[in-house]
């Protein structure tokens, strides 16, 4: 039986600042709901987007702040297997979050030893099903994937 795939893409360009990031969350929620993405998956994507944009803004350097951030959102469905991909492209310092694994941020043994640094990457890892990254035309391209199943 041929695979039934319905690609759906939404795009948005924002400034690299925390307040314009709010516009991105509204866009993501609207696009995801329009494509019948379950709320639980939207929450996961929302967390990943917030942390990805925070990384760009806080660690991307001047080039990141001076250039727009491009967002793309795709949903694909194939016989009950669903995939939502959120891509974030920025002009900041080269940084590949997909290489981050949980063992690079061991959990602190006590409150006194807790260092909040790196929590954003922990959250992206925990809330996504897959991360992919490439550097192209002097821009970071991070793709965050979440998956779920639906009754065919």
């Amino acid at each position: 039986m041929p695979e039934s795939v319905t690609p759906r893409r939404a795009e948005l360009t924002i400034r690299a600042d925390t307040w314009d990031a709010r516009r991105a969350f509204a866009w993501l929620e609207s696009a995801a709901l329009a494509h019948r993405v379950p709320v639980e998956q939207i929450v996961r994507l929302d967390h990943c987007l917030d942390e990805a944009l925070a990384n760009v803004i806080k660690h991307g350097g001047p080039a990141a702040l001076e250039s727009p951030v491009q967002l793309q959102f795709d949903v694909r469905r194939s016989e009950g297997a669903c995939t939502a991909e959120l891509s974030v492209a920025d002009a900041g310092t080269t940084f590949d979050p997909s290489t981050f694994t949980a063992d690079k941020a061991p959990r602190p043994a006590s409150l006194a030893a807790a260092n909040p640094g790196g929590l954003g990457l922990v959250m992206i890892r925990n809330f996504s099903d897959d991360l992919s990254y490439c550097r192209s035309e002097n821009r970071n391209h991070l793709t965050i994937t979440v998956t779920w199943t639906e009754a065919p």
Partner: peptide
């Protein structure tokens, strides 16, 4: 409604 790593940072502090 939503808790980011920055929010967690505030809780830890």
């Amino acid at each position: 409604k939503f808790l980011s790593s920055m929010g967690i940072r505030a809780l830890i502090a």
